[in-house]
Design a protein around this nucleic acid. Structure first.
Lengths: 224, 224
DNA sequence: AAAACGCGTCAAGAACGTGTCAAGAAACCA
DNA sequence: TGGTTTCTTGACACGTTCTTGACGCGTTTT
């Protein structure tokens, strides 16, 4: 999941970008001025910044240098000015890209992808950790005390579904239909067998699970 | 000293850029077509690539993906086309920036500085080494105990895909569709044959692989 | 209090996936 | 064109995973 910080003083543009980027799978953190932008960049794990230079409280260039003071997050500058001088200044201040308005959404999305790709190396990994074991969603790997744990495909599918909904109750029917297919929604026996196997591989005391919990008659829950 | 590879089929533009960039302290490597560009990128230590998409011998996009196959060097695309679709394609192919002609020299210089700033830090070698063998992504060569290992094209493609995702589980379907094409996504037998060949050539004990691992029912994983 | 139900556990056969060898077909190169 | 390399395909043994049934235990319902 990529998190984008959008800085723009025009509420309608902010809203429009927010909606569109969210629709394309990005997590969006909005900011209407430079001060909140800099604050948000410190409190959130930002992967890319989209920055409109025309801000009410401070010069956009100062926002760039403010960010560059401590972060190497990719910055895409939006601006209505076509002047070459403005581009030079923004890029030299530390921006990574410069897009002039009006721009097509697909172009912005492409530049976002390019920027996120670059910064991607440092971005947060889809890792879920508990005191006992770690689930690496991207690499499909589970480790316990540093050692890799072998899971069968079905075991993995069940675990992944639960881990992707941490703390949430997942009904048996939902697990069964997502892992085995809708036709198997009532084969609750499968679940018992596989939950037992997962617990045997992951829990310290399989008979008294701490993370893979049963809610009798309802479903299962993954607790951190 | 920053070295820039300039790819443009128009001799006068090539000359003009060469002179101007040199005047600004850059070392310039010129190339008039895609083939020489890709060759030059391997023989010279390039810091930034400036690429005109309109080339006589091959599609500019193929030049981008050709470079991206082994290098993360920043690529700035020059193009006469303003169409948003072209920008999206170039950026998604792996370009870092897109400048439409006509452009001011100072803007190009600023984008060059921004690109060089980014690329400067990494200087990652396209070499992957394990205690047993070494994979040279750039030169498409594998050596074992200092001796070159002969791989067939398909063997190489499979190995490359795995090595580019170290530690990550790559599904059989993904390998098959990337190497043989989407239509072959279910021809898992191919994979078994080729994994066996790779292991025979690279593993100490092919029957007990250490680096080219099988995750039954899920896919394969390259471990360092 | 007994029965019914849901859950966890174990074990075994069936079904499926994998490794290996080998040979014919196709592609490539000189 | 001939010779070589590479790809595709088949057969079989082996290992893993899935499915299924049986049983014990605890909780809830009758």
């Amino acid at each position: 999941m990529t998190t984008v910080l959008i800085v723009d003083d025009e509420p309608q543009i902010l809203r429009a970008l927010q909606i569109n980027l969210h629709a394309h799978g990005y997590t969006v953190v909005p900011a209407a001025n430079g001060t909140t932008a800099l604050a948000a960049a410190q409190t959130h794990a930002i992967d890319v910044v989209v920055l409109d230079l025309g801000l009410p409280d401070m010069d956009g260039l100062d926002v760039i240098s403010g960010l560059r003071g401590w972060s190497e997050v990719p910055i895409i500058v939006l601006s209505a000015r076509h002047g070459s001088h403005d581009k030079v200044e923004a890029l030299d201040a530390g921006a990574d890209d410069y897009v002039t308005k009006p721009f097509g959404l697909d172009e912005l999305l492409a530049r976002l992808r390019a920027a996120a790709r670059r910064g991607g190396s440092q971005a947060s990994q889809p890792l879920v950790t508990t005191p006992e074991f770690t689930v690496d969603l991207a690499n499909k790997q589970v480790s316990r005390h540093g050692e890799a744990v072998r899971l069968t495909p079905t075991e993995w599918n069940v675990l992944e579904l639960l881990v992707r909904n941490p703390g949430r109750l997942v009904s048996q029917a939902q697990i069964l239909s997502e892992v085995w297919g809708p036709a198997y929604a009532k084969e609750t026996h499968y679940l018992r067998v596989y939950m037992a196997q997962l617990r045997r591989k992951l829990e310290v005391d399989p008979a008294n699970p701490v993370h893979l919990l049963t809610e009798a008659g309802m479903g299962y829950r993954f607790a951190l």
